[in-house]
Write a protein that binds this DNA or RNA. Structure first.
Length: 427
RNA sequence: GGAGACGUCGCCUAGUCCGGUCUAUGGCGCCUCACUGCUAAUGAGGUUUGGGUUAACAGCCCAUCGAGGGUUCAAAUCCCUCCGUCUCCGCCA
């Protein structure tokens, strides 16, 4: 959620952000009104409660008739306190609801508008050309014995697949390469749970997507994560971190599950859009001040990884309307997919500033204490994909294919794959 | 899955049986100051978190004893539900 103080002191800034996203400006006025009502309810309750406490002490000391008289008096007060407290709870809840309806404030640099209003930051690598008709990843995967879509559908349904043989090997190689890079950059490697409680989902802003994006486990109040951003954001929830320990950098591996209910008919072929895949996600806790530089670093690490895969890609500054509720700014890296003739998202880096940290109550405290006490402040959270397996495989197969359907293995992957070329096993 | 024990303001801990003087005890750690060439030791003070009010990180007030309900004039303390930890049993990669 956004900083309630900014909402109160500078509502125009929030309105401007809403405009940029194409989101409702009246949400700002609703939240402001709710804030006012909340503070009034708090004042009413607290005054009554203070009086009740004072009288309670008199009751404890009084004896006999005096006590009986006080009791009768304070009983009435107790009813009023109860009522005021209930009113306060209601006011707090509607305030929280109104506040949570407002997505994160967008960064100044974030372009206004929707999906097509992104700003191109740079294009890297040369778009591959072929002196033969390139095959798509479905065909190549079949020839290599790497991707089994038919049996995926038979066993689990559409948008499922088996990675077999070199397909499975490719996944492990990509993960090893990603984790090697993460380790060298100082990240702590993590295997994260793929099932989380509703609070974790809500804290990262994904619970709203529960109908068309997120799987819920029937009978248990658990959700399958769509990204390890969820468990990693909730990892330090309800904690106060030592400022000296920041930044905390994690590289988390987990399976990711997505319903894709809203994307019927999109990417129905192959493994571009699937219900389950594995991913290595960078997740960073740092200060708000440092978050902007860290965002740039995450992007640099993503680019370094795509460079190792020897892919052609572009980097875009995603427009406000396409950010998702948590992010203030987001860079997508999109790799060229030859048979589609366009760039497709492979990785993505978001700066969520304090938005998630406020929801999940993750704060920092300066390590040098003083007598006047140390102030706490929400941390900033950022996330960036190091590698999302299925799309990485699509890009690698299609980009590095040769006329006979064999695949030239990028140098950095050779060490982990143990060979320089992947050879078809079937025509 | 069954039985039991437990959860107190960084860590440990008193308090819970028998509700009010709990404005939550003490120790450790940490912070500030004093003393001393420096450090250590010693002494004094401070040290949960959030919110309201406010010019204020001053003062005052409210909440907070795992979380949420309930009983009561009054709950760390009594009752219920949930979460978590530990021990034993059963099952199982």
């Amino acid at each position: 959620m956004i900083d309630p103080r900014i909402l109160r002191d500078d509502p125009d800034r929030v309105r401007a952000s809403q405009r940029k996203r194409g989101a409702s400006e009246s949400a700002v006025d609703d939240a402001l009104a709710a804030d006012k009502a909340r503070r009034e309810a708090i004042a009413t309750f607290e005054n009554l409660r203070a009086e009740q406490k004072k009288m309670g002490k008199q009751v404890a000391q009084a004896k006999g008739e005096e006590k009986a008289a006080l009791l009768a008096q304070v009983k009435e007060l107790a009813a009023a306190v109860k009522e005021a407290e209930a009113a306060q709870v209601v006011a707090e809840e509607s305030w929280a609801t109104a506040l949570k309806a407002i997505p994160n404030l967008t960064a100044e640099e974030t372009p206004a508008g929707g999906e097509d209003d992104f700003v191109l930051i740079e294009t890297v690598g040369e778009i591959p050309t072929f002196d033969f008709e390139p095959r798509d990843h479905v065909e190549l995967g079949r020839m290599l014995g790497a991707i089994d879509l038919e049996r995926g559908a038979k066993v689990s349904g559409s948008r499922f697949y088996f990675l077999t043989g070199v397909g499975a090997e490719l996944e492990f190689a990509l993960i090893n390469l990603a984790m090697e890079q993460a380790r060298e950059a100082g990240f702590t490697q993590v295997i994260a749970p793929a099932l989380v409680r509703p609070e974790a989902m809500a804290g990262t802003g994904f619970l709203d997507q529960v109908d068309d994006g997120v799987y819920r486990i029937e009978g248990d109040d658990l959700y399958l994560v769509g990204t390890s951003e969820v468990p990693m954001a909730a990892y330090h929830s309800d904690e106060i971190l030592d400022a000296a320990s920041l930044p905390l950098r994690y590289a988390a591996f987990s399976s990711c599950f997505r319903k894709e209910a809203g994307s019927a008919g999109k990417d129905t072929k192959g493994i571009i859009r699937v219900h389950q895949f594995e991913k290595v996600e960078m997740f960073v806790y740092t200060t708000l001040e440092e978050s902007y530089a860290e965002h740039a670093r995450l992007l640099a690490w993503e680019k370094a990884f795509l460079d190792k895969l020897e892919l052609a890609y572009r980097v875009i500054d995603v427009a406000a309307g396409d950010l998702g509720p948590s992010a203030a700014r987001k860079f997508d890296c999109e790799a060229w997919i030859p048979t589609q003739g366009k760039y497709r998202e492979l990785t993505s880096a978001s700066n969520c500033t304090e938005f998630q940290a406020r929801r999940l109550d993750i704060r920092q405290r300066a390590s040098t204490g003083s007598t006047t006490g140390t102030a706490t402040a929400p941390v900033a959270t950022l996330n960036g994909t190091l590698t999302a397996i299925t799309r990485a495989i699509v890009a690698i197969l299609e980009t590095h294919q040769q006329a006979d359907g064999s695949i030239r293995v990028p140098k950095a992957l050779q060490k982990w794959l143990g060979r320089e070329v992947l050879t078809p096993i079937a025509g």
